[in-house]
Design a protein around this nucleic acid. Sequence first.
DNA 1: GCCGTTTTCGGCCCGACTGTTTTCAGTCG
Length: 576
Amino acid sequence: MSNSQIAQIFSQMADLMEIKGEDRFRINAYRTAARAIADLGEDVADVAARNELLKIPGVGKGTAAKIIEFLREGKIGVHQELLEQYPPGLRQLLEIRGLGPRKVETLYRELNVASIADLRACIADGRLQRLKGFGEKTAKVILEGLEFLEQAGQRTPLGIAAPIAAELRDAVSRFPGAGRVEIAGSLRRGRDTVADLDMVCEAADGKPIIEQFTRLGPVAQILAAGETKASVLVDRPDGAGQIQCDLRVVPSESFGAALQYFTGSKEHNIRLREIAVKRGWLLNEYGLFKGETRLAGHDEAGIYAKLGFPFIPPELRENRGEIEADGHVPDLLEYGDIRGELHAHTTASDGRLTIEEMVEAARERGYQYLAITDHSRSSVIAGGLSAEDVLRHAAEIRALNARLKDFTLLAGAECDILPDGSLDYPDEVLAQLDWVVASIHASQHLDRDTQTRRSIAALENPYVCVLGHPSGRLLGRRDAMDLDWDLIIKTAARTGTALEINASWQRLDLNDHHVRMATEAGCWLSINTDAHSAADMDQMSYGVQTARRGWARKARVLNTFTAARLQKWIAAKRAR
DNA sequence: GCCGTTTTCGGCCCGACTGTTTTCAGTCG
């Protein structure tokens, strides 16, 4: 896909134009275009081939011409010209907190600063501090920004961020004078990783709340603290650096507006504010106003209602069609719709609990069924089962199932997809199981064609119910496999084989984009925690959020079914 | 550079906090 390359070029151009001091609206147009192309569900080359580039919102004649230039030449002339005007390391300086385009330009022009090393040298010998508009404090902020960038520069996974945020929210809730307290930002929208934590607190007087907040135990550094707003750095419990947390305090009548505002996304909010402006209104974090009159602000639903929308769930607020949907937002599934877990391991392979203990864990979470899917023989490190062992294991699962009341156990396997696309068990073994998850666990760096053929072969097998963690990514540790997603999703839709949304926060695989593609293609989905322990099952909410971000409807998610309906689905799938 | 059931020109989202300032530019979200 050239989409990400083109998006990168446009955002690079925007950065450089900003340093150059060009018109900010033109710069913004490039950023909008970059984002639109990055979010595109299909290859931009295909759109260009259909002559439909201008249909992409944010892409006009100028941008379209540059896209075509890139597709033909592999580069864009004006981008190359910009690159020649500035040293290659300059853009990196923008990533340092406290340094924006104006300061970077000044540093380059006055002191010839072109890299982080130059920057450090200028601070060390005091040249930076003597510049007009700079001072000791600026130098200190830049050094702190550099330190943060080096030790914690990357985004924090949802599964790390969510518990930290919950703890901070509970602490703030206990402050005297605090009313409603909510987590906002990309965490509330359920993104797989977050850059920082945002919180909104309702209180008549902000100052005491802010003061207490900055004194909380986990706070390692205060970046800013005013009357209504504070930014701090908090230590990550896993020791992997720090994460920024912003708290905003507003009065009761503004809480909904502030929560809406700080939940974002920025792009979604800009759309809403444009709609407000068109009606002669004003939308900000204090409310929706017509002149002096407050039309809404106490709660989020009121803001959306006044603007003519139903409540738009946070997961959809990405300006990916939720505004245009104009009320026709799909019937998104909810956490409470989940009735079972369809991917779980026991001590038979690499899980930590017995079958009985896993059943107990599932029942504690209100589930009606559980599929036991231990590893197959090729996953040697995970203690994969031989064909004989998996059948013996299945008999044991069924024996227990016969004794259970109001609960269904499915005897299954997580069967490896081998490098040649064949499965780790022969069909006659798979046929004797109730439920089969097929997953790739090894040889993840084969070329795109081979890798795609592997996945497709598994999807075509009638005994395979679901393709497990389809991209193979491990957030921050391993890239997704190079796959032809169009083809995989089309095949899944045609064969009726489900695609997994692996809910483990290290995976979240499918990701939101691919869920959206799968949903539009009419694929079945299964949200699985891939549980190796009882606690793992609690990650289901991350998977549900990812599904919602991909506009998944309850009707297409298998583990919202009753056990009886699921059994029928399996029978129908095998009969195809 | 994009966009248009008021517009093909003239707009383009909004506010808090900070540092280095004598009233505000820069940065951030």
